[in-house]
Design a protein around this nucleic acid. Structure first.
Lengths: 193, 193
DNA sequence: GATTTCATGTAAGACGTTACATGATTCA
DNA sequence: TGAATCATGTAACGTCTTACATGAAATC
């Protein structure tokens, strides 16, 4: 019963918004769906796993008009595990971009330094991909014999170029947000207000 | 031994550029990697599957300086199967976007109408997602109590907004390319040169 | 009366990855 | 001498999806 990446995704959703599996599925559908889709059955599977790991506590709630439900919330251990995972697991090469969005989504549970690091890495990767695909596009552009196959190859590469540009723009936005949050390079304490 | 989506991806790569598994892996790494990554072992598995299906023919090639290799090329049946799949399988909701890029990449094997259709669907989906996520961003913006959790939720939703915008811009590019190719709504014949 | 909402899961299988295994040749 | 390139696969396992299963209450 080892946790997988999706275990932490569900734990993170729970940390943002405790509730029943059904409610959590609706929340995930509004938020995490576009960067980390998860099926209903897997969501329920992860919830039992979290309970077995002692990372979430489920409480049966009686209802009259609707079927009874089981409401979950993260335990202290669960929050510790989540923060620990966010702080060092993400050295994975796979799903790097989605992981960065996940870490942003779960910003309150990540240290500012870690998040800034991840954003930098994400941006650098996007910049490398952008350079690589731009070169592909230009290479196909420069060919004397412009076959149909080349034109379509170029068009598909343009997709990657545009996505990479969007990623770079997004990282800049979030980097600016982080800079705004702590104008002096001091900690994550709120100044006053 | 039923074909899966990746079977057709490999078949498509082969149709664009016949060669050995090793060469194909390098080609995939330059081209399809960013929209349909495929591991080396799976590539080899798909090549044997294609041969068993009679959709590709492998020929042993002797080499002196390097190990012998097996060079593949699609059969007539294979090309027919590829075109048939491209023409009606893609009613899948999953990987819809990547499928659209794949179809663009394999443009020479898809009918113009089918490709135009797919681009339209892709664009409409991106527009719906864009509207949905813009609403999420604005909803979080409008809240009186701006928690940290909301700000980060907003930041992650912005990612989806920017990606959707990139997708929309890309579909417009390719739609323009298609319109350019056949200024009159005539067939896919090259006019003259 | 039909459909949607609420509510939770199981079972089977599709799909894909990493690690392992091998080994000659070329290049730094 | 050590690393990269060329070349092809197997075996084991991890991950996730779809379809199935159930059923009351609310809404149209």
């Amino acid at each position: 019963m080892k946790p997988v990446a999706s275990t932490f995704v569900v734990l993170g959703l729970l940390a943002k918004k405790p509730g029943s599996g059904y409610e959590l599925a609706a929340f995930a559908d509004r938020t995490a769906r576009f960067f980390w889709p998860i099926s209903r059955s897997q969501l329920y599977a992860e919830l039992s796993r979290l309970e077995q790991l002692g990372w979430a506590r489920g409480t049966a709630v009686r209802q009259e008009r609707y079927p009874d439900k089981r409401v979950y919330e993260p335990t202290a251990d669960g929050l510790t595990a989540l923060q620990a995972w966010l702080d060092d697991a993400p050295q994975q090469r796979q799903r790097g971009q989605e992981l960065t969005v996940l870490m942003t989504f779960l910003g309150p549970f990540v240290s500012r330094e870690r998040l800034a690091d991840q954003l930098r890495i994400c941006r650098e990767q996007a910049e490398r991909l952008h350079a690589e695909l731009t070169a592909v596009v230009e290479h196909l552009e420069g060919k004397q014999e412009q076959t149909e196959s080349h034109r379509f190859g170029q068009a598909s590469a343009r997709y990657g170029v545009l996505q990479a540009e969007a990623t770079i723009a997004w990282t800049e936005e979030v980097q600016a947000l982080l800079a705004d949050e702590c104008p002096r390079l001091e900690s994550n304490q709120e100044p006053s207000d």
